[in-house]
Amino acid sequence: MDWVFLSELAINGALTGLLYSLFAIGLVLIYKASSVPNLSQGGLTMVGAYVVLALSHDAGLPLWLAIPLAAVIMFGLGFGIERVALRRLAGRPVVMILMLTLGLDIFLRGTTLAIWGGTSRSVDLGVSYEPLFLGDIFVSRIHLVGAGVALALFVAFMLFFRTRTGIKLRAIADDYMASWSVGISVERGVGLSWALASVVAVAAGVIWGEIQGVDQALSLLLLKGLTVAVLGGLDSILGAVIAGIILGVVENVGADLLDPLVGGGSRELIVAAVLILTVMIRPHGLFGRHDIERV
């Protein structure tokens, strides 16, 4: 195999992988606070993209204004979800919260379908599709931009978790009861984690919307995002970044090797294999904590 071609596959795989990470960071934020994988993160990402479109294409705002505004709206929506739905489930089994997030995902898909219909719309970020060559290697500009956004969010959250509010959120992730006992508002902390995950959803929605168009299929990103989050350890943001890169590279290089043998479609198989093998061999993922057991 050609070395240049292989590095091109690997580098583009890594960039795509960072876009999975961008999605997975939202999952991790909520998992940390609630110990539940948020099955509606795909729906939130889709809604994030639709809100940006509504503000820019429908209301006529420029994108540089529409995106931050959408982030603010989604931040509020995240808080609202905790207030209206999650708070009632406090103290119930985690599986009930999981089912709630599934219901929420279905609800969000139905709502966007009702309001905006099912035709795919484009974001028009204005990123050029001219090929960009790094030496001999071709990379996609939009993927490069998205990977940059993912890394920027990663750094931002690492810094955030060292602030006093961030430390309180980590305390909530560790122990609800102990948090209450020292006056930390667990409810507000969980709400904040949903709000932040919803902001991440805007970023992921814009980038992925630019790549594949904005429609209900955006919510299916959940499957790869979950795989990345599980491989990374579900509660580690660093894990989500590294697992994203790993999955992206393995998927891209693996599919190139396998597709000729099986006649295509091996990408999904590779993702499935990574998810299943992680759960079987290393359930805590690459960077997950070993002692989370909260009911």
């Binding site: 430390i167 980590r170 305390a171 560790d174 122990d175 009861m177 102990a178 006992s181 904590r289 002692d291």
Partner: peptide, 11 residues
């Protein structure tokens, strides 16, 4: 100070 110490272990 609740029973069983319950410090924030990962902090």
């Amino acid at each position: 100070v609740i029973e069983g110490r319950r410090v924030f272990e990962h902090l």
